[in-house]
Simulated assay, not measured.
Amino acid sequence: MSSEAFTRLTAPSDYAQLLEKYDTWLFDCDGVLWTGDRLIDGAKEVLGILRKHKKSVIFVTNNATKSRKNYKKKFDSLGIEAYVDEVFGSAYASAVYLSSVMKLPKDKKVYVIGQKGLEEELDEEGIAHIGGTDPADQVIGPFSLHDFEPDRSVGAVLCGLDTGINYRKLSKAFWYLTQNPDCQDCPFIVTNEDSTYPSEGGLLPGAGAISAPLRFAVGRDPIAVGKPAKTMLDCIKAKHDFDPKRTLMVGDRLNTDILFGQAGGLSTLLVLTGITRDGDITGPNASSIVPDYVTSSLGDLRVLGNP
């Protein structure tokens, strides 16, 4: 046991105890399994070891740019065994929230700030939508309400990561949230509130940075669906039966992955291959969010495959 508030895993016996203690393993993807399009060294082998020991493996990601089917393609391209029903992204959870929790009426639409993967998940749930990848919304330049013909059937605004964000999209979303006479108090939903996300070349602004201008302009907080919100865990529980006491959440972010696990009564393992650095969990400026376990990389668990 480490003298620190968490257990720092170093010895093969440390990892063996995890294998014995937990039956269900939840994994964040970006920063844990891969960075950009680069596989984290050893990640593939570790997942194989867990499956060999009959562990349940579930992938929980806040990335809303890809649908579950597209995520499956990414796993395939990296040579990682994965199945669509094991993937839970914030795009999918947002679509489920709109259809099953909010129960958006069938005659209503969602105005989307986001990319194709988000639209695909809305389509799967039978939710009509506008905006998103519509070419009319990709125009860069001035925006005037005099030229805007709003769709009065919009009943919610959903915002995810959008690498083509522009003033036109923000302006339309703002109008639907504040000025649509046919939707008073229009629901404002975000796939997640990550401030950044790890790319192969370094950190880039995340979905939370995309929705921040709207949040400031509208003057109210959105409903967040992705980690650390409980909505994501409810979505997983609806599809998989697991014992929280024998479940481990593996992630690279304290304020999303680790907080998500703690809020759901799960044990947590922090890896240092993504957002969080060692200095964030040690010393005078250490975060108040403390994981149960810490290891430098998921690849460290490869020792479990040694005879």
Rank of each mutant, 00 (worst) to 15 (best):
A156S: 11
L203P: 11
V96G: 00
V87D: 01
R168P: 00
D151Q: 08
G219N: 13
E120I: 09
L122H: 06
E124K: 12
Y111G: 05
P213F: 09
D134F: 05
D162E: 07
A209W: 03
Y97D: 01
E86W: 09
F216C: 13
L170K: 02
G155S: 11
G202H: 04
Q179H: 13
E120S: 09
I210Y: 00
Q179E: 11
P150S: 11
W175S: 07
P142M: 10
E200N: 01
T163I: 13
V218A: 06
S199T: 15
R220Y: 10
L98T: 04
E81V: 15
L177Q: 10
P105K: 05
E193C: 06
G208H: 02
G202S: 02
C186I: 11
A212W: 04
L177Y: 10
S153Y: 05
S100E: 15
S94M: 07
G126H: 08
P142F: 11
L161W: 00
P187A: 06
F143K: 00
D162Q: 09
L118G: 08
F148H: 11
P135N: 11
G164H: 12
V101G: 00
V190I: 14
G117C: 09
T178Y: 00
H146W: 03
K109E: 10
S211K: 02
E193Y: 01
S153L: 05
V101E: 15
A217L: 11
D107I: 02
D147V: 10
T191D: 03
R215M: 12
A136N: 15
V87K: 02
K169N: 07
F143A: 02
D221K: 14
A217G: 09
E81I: 14
K172P: 00
L177N: 09
A212H: 10
G201R: 13
D137K: 03
K172Q: 12
Y197I: 10
N192K: 02
Y167S: 04
K106D: 15
P142G: 00
I130H: 03
C183G: 01
V218N: 07
G164T: 12
S90H: 01
R215S: 10
T196C: 13
R168S: 07
V112A: 10
V110K: 06
G131F: 03
G201V: 12
F143W: 11
F143D: 04
V112E: 05
Y92D: 12
K103L: 00
F88K: 05
I140E: 12
V190P: 01
S199N: 07
R220N: 08
L158N: 08
V87R: 07
G114C: 08
V87H: 02
P198L: 06
D185G: 06
V110D: 06
H146I: 11
A207P: 03
A173K: 03
I210M: 14
D147N: 15
L104C: 02
A136T: 14
P187H: 02
I80M: 15
K116E: 14
L158V: 06
Y167I: 13
N180E: 10
I130F: 01
G160A: 02
T191W: 01
Y167A: 09
I113C: 04
T163H: 08
F88I: 15
A156L: 07
G117S: 02
D194H: 04
